[in-house]
Structure formats: structure tokens, C-alpha cells
């Protein structure tokens, strides 16, 4: 699936950044299994609806073994906990350590999935639009760097090919080849410096040195962005309030604490669950909208 096809990615960069910032913050700083499971669900579901089946399968091949590995590691090294299940090399393997490992694995996978979603939703333009608000000059420098990477890659290929056509790189010896690459690299650096002289000229010719530079980006803050921002803020505030009140406290050692089920705790879970599932819900809503529109046409 193309980036442009992710409906959630069409929100304003500020909204997206704020959303992911809140979500990742809560996921990293809680141990509560209910919160972590909802974060994981949100991550998996969003991944599932925005990726092709092939990519999902590839992701599963990475995440499942990692999940198992992290869950197993904790009980092997941590021997705290009051309920020993069995002994391994005279060390107790406890129920608490096992469940704590599973909890940790859920957390790691959730954070990785959310970060993955973040990087797919926030392309370079969006990051630039964000940084541009802080400093227009910083944004320009970042944009120049982003332009330079593909340029260097291509130039490297061009020089290598030109040299190959002249008979370089035909040496069998490994060290000779390294030496040839080193020469190409030094030519590449020289070229980069040379061409940056022209780039600098082009910049100052267009008034880069003028005072009062402003930042421009193509992103508009729409009503939909406002609604999403408000929703994210409200849900995050409720979650934060619940966590600060200790409604989501959870300990594995020495004994596993009970999951809090009073009304405030349930509100906290619901708020965070909605927050974590927002991208998925939005994605499904948009997909249904298209289906409906198409059937009308």
C-alpha cells in the first residue's frame, strides 16, 4: 500500500506528531497489562489494514520470534517473585517473572509497531514542516541534506561506472579494489564540495541571507485536524489523570497485583484503548466511506 493511501497520514503534521508522542509516552511508562495490550492491539490492527498481506507476513516473522525471545529472557535471569513453578540449575523460575516477561514483550512489540507506524505516516516533508516552525533555517538545512543523499548515491554509481569503463576495478586483489573505491570516494567528496559552491551561490542569489526568513509548508490545518487534535488531547488527559491517580498501577513482584476494576480505572482503560485504536478506527471509517461512495456511483 502506498503512503498516500493511508488515510490517517493525511492529518496535519502537528496532529500526527502530538498523537504519536502521547501514545508512545504512555506505552513506555506503564506496566499495566490492559494498557499495554490495547497499545499492542492498536499497533497490530493499524499495521494490518495499511499493509499488504505479504508485508504483514514478513512483519509477523519478525515480531513473533522477538515476542517469544523477550518473554523467555526475563524468567531466566530474574528470580524474584513468590510463586516458583520449577527449578532450573537450582534457580527458581517464578510465575511472576514469566508473566512480567510476557508483559515486557507486549510493551516492546507495541512500541516497535507504533514507531513503525509513525515512520510510515510521517514522511520527510512532515518532519520538515514541524522543524520549520521552530527554525526555518534548520528546515532548509535538513531539506538540503535530504536532497543530497540520492544525489551522492547516483554520482557514486556514475563515477564507478566511468572508471570501470576505463579498466579500473578489474583487479582480483581485495586490497586493490579497496584502493580503487577509496579513490572514487575522494573524487566524490571533491565533487560534493565543488557543487556546494554553486548551491551556495544559488541560495544567496535568491536572498538566503535576508533577515526575516519565514517557513512555508504545503500542509493546511483543517477542521478535521482540529477535531483529531481535540480528541487526542481529551483522551490523553483522561489517561494521564487516571495514571496519576494510580488507577493503572500494576506490580509483578513480589506478587502480581490485581487489575484495578473500579469505575475510574475502567474509564482510564477505555480512554487509552480508544486512543490506541484511533488510527485503526479512522482507517476503517475512511475505507467504508469509499466503499459507500463507490456503490452510489
Amino acid at each position: 500500500m502506498n503512503r498516500n493511501d493511508i488515510a490517517f497520514a493525511r492529518f496535519h503534521p502537528t496532529v500526527l506528531f502530538f498523537y504519536f508522542f502521547c501514545l508512545i509516552l504512555f506505552t513506555v511508562f506503564t506496566q499495566n497489562p490492559v494498557l499495554l495490550l490495547s497499545a499492542l492491539c492498536g499497533g497490530i490492527l493499524f499495521c494490518a489494514v495499511t499493509n499488504t498481506a505479504k508485508k504483514n507476513l514478513a512483519a509477523a516473522k519478525l515480531y513473533v520470534p522477538m515476542f517469544l525471545l523477550v518473554s523467555m529472557t526475563n524468567p531466566i535471569f530474574s528470580h524474584s517473585g513468590a510463586t516458583p513453578l520449577f527449578f532450573m540449575n537450582d534457580n527458581p523460575v517464578t510465575l511472576e517473572a514469566l508473566l512480567c516477561g510476557v508483559d515486557l514483550a507486549v510493551q516492546v512489540c507495541a512500541v516497535m509497531l507504533i514507531c513503525g507506524a509513525f515512520s510510515r505516516v510521517m514522511e520527510s516533508d512532515k518532519l520538515l514542516a514541524l522543524f520549520g516552525k521552530l527554525s526555518p533555517r534548520l528546515a532548509t538545512v535538513l531539506s538540503m541534506a535530504l536532497r543530497f543523499i540520492p544525489l551522492l548515491k547516483r554520482k557514486w554509481g556514475e563515477i564507478c561506472e566511468a572508471q570501470r569503463a576505463l579498466g579500473y576495478f578489474r583487479e582480483e586483489s581485495f586490497f586493490d579494489r579497496i584502493a580503487s573505491y577509496a579513490r572514487v570516494f575522494s573524487a566524490l567528496v571533491t565533487w560534493a564540495l565543488e557543487s556546494s559552491v554553486d548551491t551556495a551561490a544559488s541560495m544567496s542569489a535568491r536572498g538566503y541571507e535576508l533577515a526575516g526568513k519565514k517557513h512555508f509548508s504545503l500542509f493546511r490545518f483543517t477542521r478535521g485536524d482540529g477535531i483529531m487534535l481535540a480528541l487526542t488531547t481529551a483522551l490523553s488527559a483522561v489517561t494521564l489523570f487516571g495514571i496519576l491517580l494510580g488507577k493503572a498501577d500494576f506490580d509483578f513482584y513480589p506478587r502480581i497485583s490485581e487489575i484495578n476494576t473500579d469505575i475510574f480505572a475502567i474509564i482510564t482503560y477505555a480512554a487509552f484503548g480508544t486512543l490506541a485504536l484511533l488510527p485503526f478506527i479512522f482507517e476503517v471509517k475512511e475505507a467504508l466511506k469509499w466503499k459507500y461512495l463507490r456503490s452510489k456511483i
Binding site: 516533508d125 535530504l146 536532497r147 557543487s195 554553486d198
Partner: peptide, 10 residues
């Protein structure tokens, strides 16, 4: 030089 006078990525 068409290459070098372009400053940004988009």
C-alpha cells in the same frame, strides 16, 4: 549547472 543550483528536496 542544473544539478548544483537546486537547493531543496521537493
Amino acid at each position: 549547472n542544473p544539478e548544483a543550483q537546486i537547493v531543496t528536496d521537493k
